[in-house]
């Protein structure tokens, strides 16, 4: 079989990719304070400890607020840009799209410090909202990538047909475009939510005195005694993101299937 060696390699590679994720629950359920082998036995005490941590609860609340707001704003901005880039030709298109997509490759620390400098310079107090500003910036390129494929799959004559049959631009958007790109929108909301929930650097620079979940996690790494609780928290987060991503993938594919397109790949 000619794919044989490739398959062995691929499975080895997946193991490498999943190594940390496999270890995570092992330590989360391990009945020991020190994160090392050999394992000491099964325990759920880190999970109970996690639930009783007030600082964690505050951080979680902050992160959820940021993630929900970010996902809505980034998706809204993504809809505009994806629609513009798939439907219209206009001057400076490449430049503007390049700028909007730039955070995809720009190191997050650059985004973080540049925003920090400007916000402090303008006398804006750091808060959850300043984190949201940064998160919207880095999530928007991902939403555009997802939404562009949704808009691309949309045959332009569908809009013309609705218009030809007496609908206005607004009602065409409501009756035809929105239902057809809805799966893409849901997928984009979920992805931005996941990115925002997981983002550290920007939150670290811009959150001020209100920690987000990753900032809280990072601070806990300094205390070895707190690490097992973080492992428990990580296990929960990983499960949550897998569920969210699975839903997002489901909607993305359904969207493509519904508008009769062809699946061309993953989230990126």
């Amino acid at each position: 079989m000619k794919g044989g060696w490739f398959k062995v390699y691929a499975i080895g590679y997946l193991l490498f990719l999943y190594a940390p994720i496999i270890l995570l629950p092992m330590f989360a359920f391990n009945d020991a304070t020190i994160i090392a082998f050999p394992l000491q036995g099964f325990s759920t005490r880190w999970f109970s400890a996690m639930l009783e941590e007030p600082a964690l609860r505050i951080a979680l609340k902050n992160s959820l607020f940021i993630a929900v707001t970010t996902s809505v704003l980034a998706t809204a901005l993504g809809v505009f840009a994806a629609r513009a880039s798939t439907r219209y030709r206009f001057p400076m298109k490449a430049g503007l799209m390049g700028l909007i997509m730039l955070p995809l490759v720009l190191p997050e620390i650059i985004v973080a410090v540049s925003l920090l400098v400007v916000l402090l310079g303008l006398g804006v107090n750091l808060s959850l909202w300043t984190v949201i500003l940064g998160h919207v910036l880095i999530c928007t390129p991902f939403t555009i990538a997802i939404l562009s494929s949704a808009f691309q799959a949309l045959d332009q004559s569908l809009e013309e047909a609705a218009y030809d049959l007496g609908e206005t631009a607004a009602s065409t958007f409501r009756l035809i475009i929105l239902p057809l790109v809805m799966p893409g929108i849901i997928s984009s909301l979920l992805i931005s939510f996941t990115i925002s929930l997981d983002e550290f650097i920007i939150a670290f620079f811009l959150a001020g005195t209100e920690p987000t979940l990753p900032v809280y996690i990072f601070s806990q790494f300094r205390f070895p005694l707190a690490v097992p609780v973080i492992m428990a928290l990580g296990t929960v987060l990983v499960c949550l993101s897998i569920v969210l991503l699975a839903i997002a993938e489901y909607f993305r594919r359904r969207g493509i299937a519904k508008s009769g397109g062809k699946d061309t790949g993953g989230f990126l």
Partner: peptide, 27 residues
């Protein structure tokens, strides 16, 4: 276009994929 007494059959047919045949015809 939406106020002209003309209607069009598109090259791609432009059948709304999220609607039934009846909903398309009655659109």
């Amino acid at each position: 276009a939406n106020q002209r007494p003309t209607n069009m059959v598109f090259q791609s047919y432009a059948i709304f994929p999220h609607l039934t045949v009846g909903e398309n015809v009655g659109f």
